[in-house]
Design a protein around this nucleic acid. Structure first.
Lengths: 225, 225
DNA sequence: TGGCGCGTGTCATCCGCGTGTCATCCGCGT
DNA sequence: ACGCGGATGACACGCGGATGACACGCGCCA
């Protein structure tokens, strides 16, 4: 789940980002309204956390502008003020929920979950290849109904494979997709990670999905020949 | 090779165009996202060089839109920013590579070459001869709907035959095409590999496609005479 | 602050398959 | 029937990939 958090207080922003990341979200931080608009336009976020008091363009305006552009990502407003009028303005501007500072982190998380849950059916992001299922949102993987634990890197690797089933991915492609760009000389990181991935998704099962194409790369098979 | 370069900075655009033209590419320049989409839709380019920051529609959106329309021309993104999030966004939007400004021209050219090289097989058409099908991209071969496993060399050999159906290929031609060294004394590598290829694509089937032209070479028949 | 565990990446080693050579067999053409 | 070109099966070597161990860095907890 990708979140855009717009909060100009750096300390609060930092703390929140840590907590949200910890909760499994991919969090981008923006610090003023203009930045927020640019980011929100550029990338598809699953939700926005939007402070009202912001430099350049305030949160209400950001929200209105997004709605005018038919960007209907769920928006959770944060504000220090709490009068009826404030709430009305917030929600009228197009926000979906509204949270008053200071708030408990747990409440923020809960409201966020609610917001995302409501939005869930809109998005069909579950990846399925053969009897493998990967949910990028919940960061879960299972094969044949059995859950599989994966580290961040392994998860990313599997996701890459599952987004290109039956396609050969060369080491170079994988490396440039998951690792930094300036790969130099020979390293067998990819081999090692493929191996580790196999340990999790293939070794315990009869049919192997991840196959080696000697001299070329690797491939995730959707169907057995 | 036809390139579409989308960059709103006129000076940079001009310089780049000169250099790329100099490097042997046919370059069209666009200066904003809308123009880019229109041009990309109208003409088949071999690659796009796409700045992220653009007027009207930004590069990420351009890229996404193209992908949604199943235009899978290779895209090289240019950007002034460089965080992991930027990269992820760039690549998630469907870009194939990502270059951070300022960059060395030589690196741009190198990445471009890599992109075009990598993409070469992807866009190559599926080869079909008789009931044989060979997909250079996925490194797969099937005959009569039945998949066939081939090693690298055998694959290359079959591809060579399929690119020249009904044509006699002499041993010298095959040898100089698949083995770099020039035909020296006697070696029957070619014979051996043709044999191995037959094991896979002819032996299990009734009609034989790979035939020997005694004293001359071999030929892959598309149709029975 | 130091120890601990996990995730990540490197390295050295091991193993099997693909590759190319050779010896031999086969069969077509003369 | 003979000879040559090609077919075929066996074999050894080396590369590409698999594998296990290890070293580093970071967060966590005492």
């Amino acid at each position: 789940m990708r979140l855009l958090m717009v909060e100009d207080n750096r300390r609060l922003s930092h703390v929140l980002k840590l907590s949200l990341t910890d909760a499994g979200y991919a969090v981008d931080a923006a610090y003023d309204g203009r930045e927020a608009l640019d980011l929100a336009a550029a990338a598809p976020y699953d939700a926005l956390i939007l402070d009202i008091m912001l430099p350049s363009i305030d949160g209400l305006a950001v929200c209105r502008t997004l709605r005018e552009r038919h960007v209907n990502v769920p928006v959770l407003m944060l504000t220090a003020r709490d009068t009826v009028a404030d709430r009305v303005r917030g929600l009228d501007s197009g926000a979906d929920d509204y949270l008053v500072k200071p708030f408990a982190l747990s409440e923020l998380l809960a409201r966020l979950r609610a917001l995302l849950r409501r939005d869930a059916p809109r998005r069909a992001a579950l990846l399925e290849v053969a009897d493998l299922r990967l949910d990028p949102a919940n960061h879960t993987v299972e094969r044949d109904e059995r859950p599989i634990e994966l580290t961040t890197k392994l998860f990313a690797l599997l996701e890459y494979f599952m987004r290109h089933p039956n396609q050969i991915l060369t080491r170079e492609m994988i490396e440039s997709h998951l690792w930094s760009y300036d790969y130099e000389g020979a390293s067998n990181v990819v081999d090692v990670y493929v191996r580790r991935l196999r340990c999790r998704i293939d070794d315990p099962f009869a049919t192997k999905l991840l196959e080696t194409v000697r001299g070329v790369g690797y491939r995730l098979r959707a169907t057995r020949p």
